[in-house]
Nucleic acid binder design. Structure first.
Ligand code: SF4
Ligand code: SF4
Lengths: 150, 150
DNA sequence: ATTATTTAAGAGTTTAATGTCTTTAATATA
DNA sequence: TATATTAAAGACATTAAACTCTTAAATAAT
C-alpha cells in the first residue's frame, strides 16, 4: 500500500470533517461510526492532527473534534505528513546506504519524478476546497451506502 | 516505503545478476555478501523469482542462481510483481469498500495517473538493458564501496 | 457536588513483514 | 561410495503496523 492505514483513515476523517458542521465539534464516535473506522484507533490518529494544529478538540459533553482554520487551508499532504511524517516524500526508491544524486542507482531520476507526482496528488487542493468539490461531484469518502455531503 | 524490502532486495539482486557473469551461476551467498543482504532472506526472495521463471537455480558445487532468458528480457516491474504480487498496481488510494470509477473518491483520477507513473518507472527498460546502462553510467546497486560492473 | 460525556494517554494484543536457523534434497568431485 | 557444496523448504524469532482496552482528565448539566 502506498499510504499507511493510519494516513488513509486520517484523510477520510479530514474530508468528513471538512464536509460536516463547519465550526461545530463532531464527536470522534460519530465520525468513526460513519466512516467505519475503529473508534480508539481513530482517536489515536486524530491526536496527531490536533498536535499539529490541523484540528481542535474539546472534551466533555457536546465536545469532539473539528478542523482548525489552519486545517481548512491544509491539504491531504499536510494530513499525511502529520500522521506518518515526511519519509515517503524524502526517502529514495532502493534505500541504498550512503546514496545520493551523485553516484545514483538506475531509478534515481525517474523516482524523483514519481515522488513529486505523489506529492502533487496530495497537495492539489485544500480540505476546504475539497469539501466544495465533494458536494458538487458527490465524491465518496465512506463505505457503501450512508453518506451525504449535506 | 513505496516498495517492500523484499522487492527492493529482489531488484538489487536482479540488477547484480544482470551485470555479472551472464550465463554462469552466481551463488546466493556471493550475491548476499556483495549486496549486504541476509543470505537466508535473500534465498527466500529469489525463490519467488525462480518460481516465476525469471531466474534459474542449480544445486550443488558451483551451483547458484542466474537470470533466465525470460529474466533478461524482464523489467523491474516483473520482479516486483513476482515478489509482492500486482496489488500496488491495482489497488486504490483510499481503499474504500465497494468503490470504483463510478462513484469515485476525490483522488480517483489523480491516483490512476500516479499509479501508472510508478508502473512506468519500473517497466522502462529490461534487466539486460539496465546492465548495459549501468556499465555505461556506473550506476550504484550496492552499499558504499565495493562494486564493479565488470 | 455528582454524574454523564467526551477526548487524552498509555498499556496491551494481534497480525503481517522481516529476519534467522535448521533440516532436507540435489549435485559435483574425489 | 563418501564428502563437500549448494539451493529448497520450513520452523522459528523479531519487529513494526494495526488494532483494542483501560484509566485519567476535562467539561457540561443536573
Ligand atoms: S540513486 Fe537515488 S533513488 Fe537510487 S538508491 Fe540512491 S538515492 Fe535512492
Ligand atoms: S474512487 Fe478510486 S481511488 Fe478513490 S477509493 Fe474508490 S477506487 Fe479507490
Amino acid at each position: 500500500m502506498l499510504l499507511s492505514k493510519s494516513s488513509v483513515y486520517g484523510i477520510r476523517a479530514s474530508l468528513y470533517l471538512a464536509a460536516h458542521n463547519r465550526g461545530q465539534y463532531n464527536s470522534i464516535r460519530e465520525v468513526s461510526e460513519e466512516l467505519d473506522i475503529s473508534f480508539h484507533f481513530l482517536t489515536k490518529i486524530l491526536q496527531n492532527l490536533t498536535a499539529d494544529n490541523l484540528m481542535e478538540s474539546y472534551k466533555g459533553p457536546n465536545g469532539g473534534i473539528r478542523l482548525s482554520a489552519k486545517g481548512r487551508k491544509a491539504t491531504l499532504l499536510d494530513v499525511v505528513i502529520a500522521i506518518d511524517g515526511p519519509d515517503l516524500f524524502v526517502e529514495c526508491a532502493l534505500g541504498l546506504p550512503g546514496c545520493g544524486s551523485s553516484d545514483p542507482c538506475p531509478l534515481h531520476n525517474n523516482w524523483a519524478m514519481v515522488r513529486e507526482g505523489i506529492k502533487d496528488m496530495l497537495a492539489r487542493t485544500t480540505l476546504e476546497e475539497m469539501a466544495k468539490e465533494g458536494k458538487a461531484n458527490k465524491f465518496r469518502i465512506t463505505p457503501d451506502g450512508h453518506f451525504s455531503w449535506q
